[in-house]
């Protein structure tokens, strides 16, 4: 059994993951070093990568802040009734089961230029849909459960006793959080951050719908790859994809590392 299953497992990984990865890595060099350099130094590529970077930063900051706070409220908050908590808890997962395209569509439907809210914001000169804020919103929507789902179990596992001990020793909420709670959930949060970065880096469907994919304006790295492929410009697509792959693999390594650290405590 063993003699059959191990090679079979290797085969699955080889066919499904390793060979495609290698193919991307080599495909980018098809037109030589110059081709690759050209592919990633095109103005639209530079802009798209910048855009992606900006989205990653903004989304990761917001999602971390709100994700951690919501987790604390959902696990510790006595001011929320248990029924309400259960309801909120099940809503958290919804973005997992919503197609990113639909996620994007939702934002267009609510905040698009033809809606009341959208028109209002546009009149005060704040464009949401087909602009940066909309893209951030769409990415926030799809990444929302990642942080909460990482932090909540950790909070549940560490229990309340250490926090109570801190309060009997004279520490108030804020001190307790930074001195006691934070060091215990830190690795869970870092893991959540890595997942959020990976997801916001790679988000495609939702951003495509919300951004309108306008070159040099609202185009991100992934939507640029899509456009390049649609234009049969596979080598250029490959160049940008290679950068994304490099980031993803790096993130995967951080993911493994933080998973191990998370398990230590």
């Amino acid at each position: 059994m063993r003699k059959l299953l191990i090679p079979l497992t290797y085969l699955v990984f080889l066919v499904l993951l390793i060979v495609p990865l290698i193919k991307i890595a080599f495909g980018a060099w098809e037109d030589g070093v110059d081709g690759l350099i050209h592919a990633i130094t095109r103005p639209e590529a530079v802009h798209a990568l910048m855009m992606t970077g900006l989205i990653v930063i903004v989304v990761t900051l917001l999602n971390t802040l709100f994700g951690v706070m919501l987790s604390i409220y959902l696990v510790r908050g006595t001011w929320l009734g248990s029924r309400l908590k259960q309801l909120l808890n099940s809503i958290v997962d919804l973005p997992f089961s919503v197609s990113p395209v639909i996620g994007g569509l939702m934002i267009v439907l609510i905040l698009g230029p033809s809606t009341t809210i959208g028109a209002f914001f546009e009149s005060i000169g704040f464009k949401i849909v087909y602009a940066f804020p909309g893209m951030v919103l769409a990415t926030l929507f799809v990444t929302f459960p990642l942080m909460v789902r990482e932090v909540m179990p950790v909070l549940q596992e560490i229990g309340t006793q250490q926090e109570e001990a801190a309060s009997t020793l004279g520490a108030y909420g804020w001190t307790t959080f930074w001195k006691v709670t934070w060091p215990l959930i830190r690795w869970g949060v870092i893991y959540g951050v890595v997942l959020t970065i990976a997801r916001s880096l790679g988000e495609f469907g939702a951003v495509l719908v919300v951004s309108g994919n306008v070159m040099n304006k609202t185009q991100t790295a992934t939507t640029l790859v899509y456009q390049d492929v649609e234009n049969f410009n596979v080598v250029s697509a490959n160049g940008v994809a290679l950068i994304l792959v490099a980031f993803s693999v790096a993130l995967l390594l951080v993911m493994e590392w933080s998973k191990k650290r998370k398990g230590v405590h």
């Binding site: 990865l21 790679g202 469907g205 792959v245 693999v249 993130l251």
Partner: peptide
């Protein structure tokens, strides 16, 4: 040999942009 590496690789599709995943299949 390679078990831990394969184990880490399992998460690759989560870390990789899906559009890049599509491109990989297209290239291959």
């Amino acid at each position: 040999i390679g078990r831990t590496i394969l184990n880490s690789l399992v998460d690759l599709p989560f870390a990789l942009p899906t559009a890049v995943g599509g491109l990989m299949i297209l290239l291959l």
